[in-house]
Each structure stands twice: as C-alpha cells, then as structure tokens.
C-alpha cells in the first residue's frame, strides 16, 4: 500500500497544517463515546446533560477529543508519525450543531540525543469565534527513508524531552 511519509527535513517552524472541518451531530458525539467505552450519560442523554451538567446538549468526551487530535496529526505525518505526547485543555464543550475546525502549526523541530526527530505542534479546535480546546503535541517524525520512530524502544524513545 502506498502511503504518505513526511520527513523531518520537510518541516519548518511556523509551517501550518492543513485545516480540518468536522460537522458535529448527535451521532458524532454518541459514536465517539461508544468507541471510547464511555457510558456516562452526559455524552448520550440530552436531558441529563442539561439538567445535571447545565450544558445545552450532550457533548464530545475527552478520549474522543484525543482521537480527533491524533487523526489530525497523523493525517499530516503519515503512518510513521508516532505520537509522544498530547496535552489539551477543554475550556468549553463541543455540541451537536457545531462545526469543529482544527488548525495547527509547527512550534519546534529537532532531534534528541538518540537521533530521534521530533516536531512540537500547537493545535486549536475552533467552533465559530470560540476555541473550546487547545492542544500541544509532540510527535516523532522519520529523519530519512530508513528511519522508523515506531522501532524505538527503551532509552531510544523519549516522549518527554530530557531536562
């Protein structure tokens, strides 16, 4: 199977990732909750979400957010891109009827002391004028055709930079 492969030398600080737009429906929210085995009612029961959580509708859950960020990142890197770390803050929820727009940019590019290529990303999940979730991600990228970050184990895999 022919697959896309982004290499470290092709990436520069400030580069922007392609935008991704997702229309959110009740099915989007419920499918994500089921996929995450998250049975809490605020992700499938509108009455519960409104009466107990005080939100206007059911809303996307945390692991579903994470899955969207992963998809957004690896759509860009191709399958050799290996997530080291993601960190995100959900300051507002995402509801059915919203259109999510993912926008990302490259904050840093480099290699660690084991020769692993890394890219730091900032990704905003926007809905209209709001940014309900902001994400920082660190992803390993091959440095050449022979490199494969997935083969790294033990001391050769450093998802958190050395102090």
């Amino acid at each position: 199977m022919q697959t896309k492969e982004l290499r470290l030398a092709q990436i520069s600080i400030g580069a922007e990732l392609p935008e991704l737009r997702i229309e959110v429906t009740p099915s989007t929210v419920v499918l994500g909750a089921i996929a995450a085995r998250d049975w809490r009612p605020m992700h499938h029961d509108k009455d519960f979400a409104q009466e107990r959580n005080g939100t206007r509708h059911i809303f996307i859950n945390t692991p579903h957010n994470a899955a969207y960020f992963e998809r957004y990142i690896t759509d860009w890197t191709g399958p050799k891109g290996r997530l080291g770390k993601i960190q995100f803050r959900m300051s507002d929820s995402v509801f059915p009827g919203d259109t999510m727009v993912f926008r990302g940019k490259v904050d840093a590019v480099g290699t660690d002391d084991r020769g692993c290529g890394w890219v730091d990303l900032s990704i905003d999940l926007e809905v209209g004028e709001k940014t309900p979730t902001r994400c920082k991600a660190r992803v390993a990228i091959p440095i050449d055709a022979d490199d494969n970050p997935w083969k790294r184990r033990g001391d050769d895999w450093k998802p958190v930079p050395s102090a």
Binding site: G54, N65, A66, G84, I86, R89, M90
Partner: peptide
C-alpha cells in the same frame, strides 16, 4: 457534578 478540563497523555 464534575467535568474534565485538561488531559495530558505521554505514550
């Protein structure tokens, strides 16, 4: 009541 606000995962 409770909600999650931040999530960090190191893989």
């Amino acid at each position: 009541e409770a909600v999650m606000t931040d999530n960090t995962i190191t893989f």
